[in-house]
Write a protein that binds this DNA or RNA. Sequence first.
DNA 1: CGATAGGTACGATCAATCTCGTACCTGCTG
DNA 2: CAGCAGGTACGAGATTGATCGTACCTATCG
Lengths: 105, 105
Amino acid sequence: MPDDEGHPSVEEIELGPVLSALADPLRRRVVRELAAEPDGAARTCSSFGLPVSKATVTHHFRALREAGLIRQVDRGNSRMASLRRADIEQRFPGLLDIVAAEPEE
Amino acid sequence: MPDDEGHPSVEEIELGPVLSALADPLRRRVVRELAAEPDGAARTCSSFGLPVSKATVTHHFRALREAGLIRQVDRGNSRMASLRRADIEQRFPGLLDIVAAEPEE
DNA sequence: CGATAGGTACGATCAATCTCGTACCTGCTG
DNA sequence: CAGCAGGTACGAGATTGATCGTACCTATCG
């Protein structure tokens, strides 16, 4: 059962939602940038400079969070997103490498 | 440039279309079943027994073909589909294992 | 030849989703 | 306190995609 903020537990991470989330180029870009950071790095949603409105950014981050790809934690004013690297690697070994290796678009 | 039947070459296989194709559970099922066969095995579209109409089956196989996941060759009356195992493995190492490991739904 | 089976093409429908504007909440910061 | 910046919630519009029925083509089989 997902927690209060909509994060699935490791066992609950399923391939369908993960692939659906990664099917979107903007969301792959977020995952790719997070994967390039040191492990555990957290960034605000807005720091990615996605070329869409704030409302759409929220939409994409919800998709990533509910699929289990990122973890979002409140930090005062803003909300920090970090990659669930170990969790994804445990469920789908190699998947992050594939996404991280994609050239920018 | 894709060939006459819509197959992209190895270099043309891109992550976006591949993930979009694999986002559908029916298409993952086809790939999973093909991955379980010996390499090079070819099956007709209808042999998968997908619970949808013929027209929809054609739609799904086109998505798989245009993404570069399967190769379809005419054989007289019917059309045989085979997994482009080596091509996918070359472009996205490990991806097929992830899909093949998914439990049936 | 006629019937049937495997597939495709086209058009329609319905659901999902990407996108946005607006309104709103919450902390900072002057 | 007033303003602003980061985010979310909600509802709307537009687009994509899954599904189907029908018509059609081609090869095989009786």
